[in-house]
Structures are given as C-alpha cells and as structure tokens.
Design a protein around this nucleic acid. Structure first.
Length: 569
RNA sequence: UGGGGCGUCGUCAAGUGGUAAGACACGGGACUUUGGAUCCCGCAUUCGGAGGUUCGAAUCCUCCCGCCCCAGCCA
C-alpha cells in the first residue's frame, strides 16, 4: 500500500489525535481496537482537504493496526448522486488506501435509526413539531437570546407515535412537520435547542428508492452510524465541535455504544478555494473543464495534472494535524510533487516554443544516435538513444540576441552545450524582415565534443535541450497557473466574492511543441520530465497523432528568480 | 454582545515547568553535461499582550487583546 522509500523520509511528527490513540491503546479504553471512518457525503468530488482527512482516518487506523470504514453519509437524496460515490471510491483507492470489506452507507441503517427514533419518542425525548421552517427559525432564538418552546412540544407520546408513523408513510407534505429531540430551548448551544431529527423529503434515494418519505438529519444520523459500526475514534473537522454535545446526547439517551468524536482543523491552501460549493460553481459556470480539471484542487484534478499519490500523502503527513486554523502554502505541496517526480520520472527532451537552428558545418544527411540518461537519480532506469541531425529546435527563451547579465545561455558568438550532443557556437541570426522576429539561428559545432565533453577541458556555461527537427513529433502542452491570483481568494473587497480573484490566465495551451520520438505511444497518466522545463503527464485527450501533455509543475527555476530580481525583461 | 474553539519564525508545526525540534519559503556558498538534483551555512534571546507563582514558565494562575465556528427541515 505504501512506498517505503518515499514515505520513510517524512518523519511521523506527533499530533494530538495520534497521542489520543496511543493513550487509548495504553489504557485499553477500546479493548485494543482502533476503528475510524471516512464519511463523505456524495455530493461532490473529493479535494485535497478530503485527502488530508483520508490520510488521517485511514493512515492512523493502519498505523495502529486498526481499520477504517468508507462510509457514505447519504442522508440527503436531494443532493447526492452515484457519480460522486464512484468518484470518491476511485480517489480513495488511487491515494493508496483500502477499505476492504468495510464499505458502508448511512442509508443502510435507516430502519435501525427509525426504531431508535421510536424509542426516543416513547421515552418522551422526541416529538413531532408542526411548526413551519420559518417558524422553527423564529422560535430558535438568537445567539444571545434563548429560544421559545414549540406549542407542539408536549404532545402525548401516542400522538407523536401516530404522527411520526404517518410522516414515514408519506401522508404529509414536505416541510409540513419534523421530528425533533426534546432537549433545551434555552441552551446557549443552539444545536441543543430541540434539533430536528427527521424531515419529510418525498425524494427518491439512489439506494433506498422510494421506501422513505422521511430522512434523518446529520446530527441524528452520524453518531448512530458510528455506533452501529463500533467506531472508536470519530474524527471530523472543527465546525462539528459545537455538535459534539448533541452527538453525545443522542448516544447517551439511547444508551448504546458510544465512540469518541475528535475534531481537527480543515486544510486551507493558498491560491485556491476548498469548499465544494465554490468548486461546484467553478464547474457549473464553466471556468474550468469539470471537477477533474488539472487546475482544480480536487484529487481527480491533481491526478490528471500529474501529481503522484505519494506526494499528496507525504504532504498530508508533513502539514500535521492540529486545531488551529491555518493556510498552507501551496509551494509545500509542489515541493513534495517535485521530490517524488525527481526520483521516479524518466527524463526526455521537448521544446515548448521551438526556434529552428541550423548547424552549418554538420553533414547534410547524417543522423547520429546519441546516448541519453533516462534518470540521473536512478541508474536502473537506463539509457536511450536520441537522434541528432543538422537541423534542430531549441527553446526560444534559450537564445538572447542581447543577453542580460548572468544569462548563460546561447547568444551571438557564444558557445553552449547541447545536452548529450555537442558544443555549438552561434554564428548568425536570421530574422523576419517585416516583423523583426527571429526565425532561425545558425551555429557551428565542434566534432570533438561529441557526447557533450570537450577533450581540451574547455568549459561552457550552460547546457540546452534540443530536438532533431527531422525526427521531432508534434505535441500539445497545456501549461497551468494558479486558479486564483491572490493567496486567499476569499479575501475580497466589499460586495465582491472569490470569483473576483479568478486568474484569467490559469491555462495556456502550446500547440507547436516538438518532442523527441522516444515519447511515442506514452499512455495517458504517464508522468515524465522534460529536461530543464518541468514535469509533465500524458493527458487522456492525447491521440495517436498528437499527444497532449499537462505540465504538472515546473522545475525549480533559479534563472527565473535572478531575472525577476534584475527587474525582468 | 450567548456558547464553543484557537493564538509558537513569512507559511505549516513540535514542545505538556528545566532554559525554542523539523519542514517549506527565503538568503549565501560548493558541486554539476538539467541555472534540475545533491551538499553545506544562515534564518524566533523568544512563544498574542500585561501582570503573578516559581530557583526556573511557551508550558501553571489572573486579566486583557485578536482570529475562527454556531441562529439549514445541509453535512
């Protein structure tokens, strides 16, 4: 399940949940068991924030020899879809976790929940309320004022039983009645002011069809699901902290198995948004190509972008688990992506923005097969042959007619190395007479430097990647930038929302890329490096004639930094 | 202004009375047939603030300040 090589480097830092589990094991609180659960509502695609939760739920359980249940919290048929269930399962699996037999659905427990509701009614701890939604809201009071008790609060048990049964039978309209817990309308915790347990929803459920006309609310359902599954540690995010008294109350009243709820702070990442509602908006309004768009912080988006699952796991371990709100710098995620890809991605040469170069003194009809290393970090990856000939392409940005300070690449009269090939010197620059655009370079090569070493010990300041024009394959490369222009997209001027910070240039498509022939036939999902450019991943849009690559992340770019510090150009 | 949480480097985050780990980012250097990788070095006299307890406090006490969450028949 886990790659020891990569996982080992990320030390397991202590975190408070890990400590709680250790302590519970030490005191034998749960009889030596550790059972967690990842309980997504299938109403959207999982994102990197869910990845954090998945790593905590599955990771901690595995670490302590326990199990983690994958449980779909499907209590609201108006929002949930099978498509999302499938996506969640695929993503959890892809991240490297395994729930074994433990695939559960909250809806599978609807009968048991109903029985328990009956029990609470009989005990005088729940009642059917005829108040309408807006009345319930009004009766709830405010943050500083207590609520008022509903006039229906003290209905006789028999009447409650009768009404509740008829709610179930579909006799009443949506919104006309609810079942409420009878707790305390004056509680300073609003969640305890007679929370709704069931609402009438005459909606077909993906799994239970039309057998139910009432559906349980989260607070009622969740603890029961945990209890039924004999969960030990019910881990959730901070906003549920206020719900814990209610979680505990239901289980105590029912006198059933009672897990411990533990809350941690959800993940926030710079330059992105992390709520399903906001991500849905991006999808629905067409700002991205879908939930799996490579710019999305969704797990499916990151997969298509080329992020390795190990990188995401390492990231989740490194950011830790705590209770304080935080905003993690996306560069930390990118660091783990690069780290992983550097170790495993095979290297190729590809020119994104080609500039034609003619090597004047190279024989016309000769083609040499030069040996190139596939991955300097992994000798076992071996070598390959790359064709070289008189006309090649280099990167436009690797030539400057008037090189700025510290620009080591090609310039008129300057000698550089072509990786794995020869030293070449630029002898002429050809321009378009009308536009002044550089259309072609002429160079001479030094035959003694074959392979890239000079026998006379002559040094050269830089090495360029290249592709033989006659052998190059055309490709499309999609470059991605952050989806938002500001570290915290939610920070906006009065009257605006996060959409105001959308980056209009988050996608750039390059259509005339030239790549070395070794890449022919690479399967979608294949991750590799274009030397000196970055890591790429074969996109499913690829066709036989034209591969499409997503740039996962650039290499660290020292020159870009220097150039920026020099004031650009 | 009711209740629940949280405040340690630019960003995450250890630390639980014994004198501030680590990572990313950033800056500098070495090395280099990827300006990649790798390797060195630097980077909180101080833990939201003020008092107090103590030989000793980020850790205990008091007060104050700031930030987040809660008034869905969403989860």
């Amino acid at each position: 399940m886990k790659d020891k090589n990569t996982e080992a480097k990320v030390a397991l830092a202590p975190n408070f949940i890990r400590e709680i589990m250790k302590e519970d094991l030490r005191t034998n609180k749960w009889g030596g068991r550790v059972v967690t659960r990842f309980p997504p509502e299938p109403n959207g695609y999982p994102h990197i924030g869910h990845a954090k939760a998945i790593c905590i739920d599955f990771g901690l359980a595995a670490e302590f020899g326990g199990v983690c249940h994958l449980r779909f919290d499907d209590t609201n048929p108006t929002k949930e879809e099978q498509e999302y269930i499938d996506a969640i399962k695929e993503d959890v699996r892809w991240l490297g976790f395994n729930w074994g037999e433990h695939e559960y659905y909250g809806s599978d427990y609807f009968d048991q929940m109903y029985e328990w509701a009956l029990q609470l009614i009989k005990d005088g701890k729940a009642y059917v309320d005829d108040l309408k939604p807006d009345q319930i809201r009004a009766y709830r009071g405010t943050l500083t004022e207590p609520g008022k008790e509903s006039p229906y609060r003290n209905r006789p048990v028999e009447e409650n039983l009768d009404l509740f049964e008829r709610m179930k039978a579909g006799e009443f309209e949506d919104g006309s009645r609810v079942l409420r817990a009878k707790i305390d309308m004056a509680s300073p915790n609003l969640n305890m002011r007679d929370p709704v347990m069931y609402r009438i929803l005459k909606a077909p459920h993906p799994r239970t069809g039309d057998t139910w006309n009432i559906y349980p609310m989260y607070d009622w359902a969740h603890g029961l699901e945990d209890s039924i599954e004999k969960v030990t540690h019910s881990i959730c995010t901070l906003e549920f902290e206020d719900h814990r008294p209610l979680y505990d109350w239901f289980l105590d009243q029912l006198d059933v198995y009672h897990p411990q709820q533990i809350e941690f702070a959800r993940l926030n990442l710079t330059y992105t948004v992390m709520s399903k509602r906001k991500l849905l908006k991006l999808v629905e309004e067409g700002h991205v190509g879908g939930w799996g768009d490579p710019r999305m912080p969704t797990i499916s988006g990151m997969r298509r972008r080329g992020y390795p699952p190990e990188a995401i796991r390492n990231f989740c371990e490194r950011i830790g688990v705590a209770k304080r709100d935080s905003m993690v710098d996306v560069s930390l995620l990118e660091y783990f992506v690069r780290e992983e890809l550097n170790k495993h991605a095979l290297r190729y040469m590809g020119v994104l923005r080609p500039l034609r170069v003619v090597i004047d003194n190279y024989p016309e009809d000769t083609v040499e097969e030069l040996e190139a290393i596939n991955n300097p970090e992994d000798p076992a990856a071996g070598t390959r042959k790359v064709p070289f000939s008189k006309v090649i392409y280099i990167e436009r940005e690797d030539f400057r007619e008037d090189p700025p300070r510290k620009f080591y690449r090609l310039a008129p009269g300057r000698e550089v190395r072509l990786r794995y090939a020869y030293f070449v010197t630029c002898v002429d620059v050809v321009k378009d007479e009308k536009t002044g655009e550089i259309t072609e370079l002429h160079c001479t090569y030094d035959p003694a430097t074959r392979g890239g070493d000079s026998p006379d010990g002559r040094k050269v300041k830089s090495t360029l990647h290249w592709v033989s024009a006659a052998h190059a394959m055309n490709a499309e490369v999609r470059l991605y930038d952050r989806l938002f222009t500001t570290p915290d997209p939610n920070e906006v001027e009065q009257g605006q929302d996060f959409m105001a910070n959308l980056n209009p240039n988050s996608l750039e498509v390059l259509n005339a890329c030239k790549i070395e022939p070794s890449l022919v036939g690479a399967k979608p999902g294949t991750r590799f490096q274009f030397e000196r450019q970055g890591y790429l991943c074969v996109d499913p849009d690829s066709t036989h004639d034209k591969p499409v690559f997503n740039r996962t992340v650039t290499l660290r770019d020292t020159w870009a930094k220097i150039e920026k510090a020099q004031g650009g150009s």
